[in-house]
Design a binder for these strands. Structure first.
Lengths: 257, 257
DNA sequence: TGACTCAACTGGCTTAAGCCAGTTCTACTG
DNA sequence: CAGTAGAACTGGCTTAAGCCAGTTGAGTCA
């Protein structure tokens, strides 16, 4: 009998595969509750532990999410917030709307951000090199923000600015004293953003990131290391974005040079 | 006593935290073998199952990798292959070197790629819309490739080309009959790449992707949906890259418009 | 010397049983 | 009727025990 082929793969994987197929077929709709672990165990002729294992696999894949005391649910895909390559475009600065707020509004969400901390620090070697400052003195200002869409933390942003630029600008205060925001200040200081360099990677979050971005299992983070370059080809600001991949995407619409 | 504070977090997480700290402190060097599960169980006063659980957490974070029969090892970070925004720049086409091969060579690796399949297919609705072709007929050619660095599969690439462009060009053959590659053909056909649009997301791999990219647990994938746009602002080719995040990064150095 | 066997290790996975902690709803109480 | 106690559910995690399957190296045999 073809039933007898003896699948040598672990039972927990086979259960996960079966459930995955059912979810992809739509037999369990997004948001729907799966049968309880105890019921699934009975159905598959396995012990609850093994079903738990199978569900963990699906959770890691980002397909389901378990809620303690309530059940296991098929994860609902969030629409992505798209951070675009045009996010620094002058057109936004004049309208007064940040691309982030626009994206949130599109989804009927309220975007906001919080300042977590501002500090004048000694940069590490790599950063010092990027910004062409000394790594022996407190030569940069670091600003730390979190962005929210409604109540969900969406990304964490760290900005480093050479002290030579930040000095006397009020960039040590939480409230940025310029109508065009932080980049308005840079322009006043003679740095017009001419190019950007974004280095993009993805990875699993650290435990820290899990807690401050409120991440569920199976959600990677996208890390963007952004450098602003002025009219002289000189970098004058570095920003790191750590974004939850289930709510964010990037979009680069750029000329071929 | 401060020992008595009673950490209420699960034992497996506490063990994972402890081991993570040791790894980050360098007490276990990259590539080093951790003590066996049975020894760790003894050390932490837990049962082997619980240690296994803790190690799975670290594996999911991409910190360690278990090898059946051999032991658990601290993962060695791979240098990243950087796919740049300039990867379509004419400068590469003339030198005959693809950015991918250059990056591999930098790392002393041999890059190569394989054609997995070529087919003339009916596009799905979304793709048809992007390429402005009909979704009722076999209006696109799909080419499927895998790229390797030495023996490691690094990314999988799927390219869709409107049949109206591919027709009569030999794009249905594995060997691209043009000295400047596939993009040379497009130029001959009157489509000069003027802009690109890359949509970037990250997520956990599907089981399929795990097997064909040979992924270990805790490695996300980066997905890039790339559209080439010609001198008239018209899209004429769509490519999807699925890249393993532990070996790949992206880099966009672009003007602010 | 070289090929092979096998013991002693490694992680992988499952069963079995149980306690704990959230959630939900029902039925009772004031 | 409002409020609440509690049963009956949910998943989370641990212990305990064992079999299985890769790996490695020591020792044996031809």
């Amino acid at each position: 009998m073809s039933d007898e082929v003896e699948d040598r793969r672990p039972l927990s994987r086979r259960i996960a595969d079966e459930l995955r197929k059912e979810i992809e077929d739509g037999r369990h709709a997004p948001g729907a509750k799966l049968p309880s672990q105890r019921k699934l165990a009975e159905r598959f002729g396995a012990v609850r532990n093994t079903v738990d294992e199978a569900l963990k696999i699906l959770a890691q894949e980002g397909l389901v999410i378990a809620e303690h005391g309530r059940g296991v649910f098929v994860r609902v895909k969030q629409p992505l917030i798209r951070l675009g390559s045009d996010r620094y475009s002058p057109k936004y600065r004049e309208s007064g709307l940040s691309p982030f707020l626009v994206e949130c509004a599109k989804q009927g969400k309220v975007g906001k951000f919080e300042v977590l901390g501002i500090e004048r620090i000694k940069p590490d070697k790599e950063l010092a090199e990027q910004l062409k400052v000394s790594d022996k003195t407190k030569s940069v200002v670091r600003r730390e923000n979190v962005f929210y869409a409604d109540a969900d933390p969406v990304y964490r942003v760290t900005t480093w600015i050479p002290w030579s630029i930040a000095q006397g600008t009020g960039l040590l205060q939480p409230e940025v004293p310029h109508q065009y925001g932080i980049h308005g200040i840079f322009e006043d200081k003679g740095h017009v953003m001419t190019r950007i360099n974004d280095e993009i990677t993805a990875r699993m979050p650290t435990p820290d990131e899990v807690s401050y971005l409120n991440l569920s299992p199976g959600v990677p983070v996208i890390e963007v290391m952004h450098t602003s370059i002025d009219q002289d080809g000189e970098p004058y600001e570095v920003t790191r974005f750590v974004m939850r991949a289930d709510m964010n995407g990037l979009s680069y619409n750029v000329p071929v040079e």
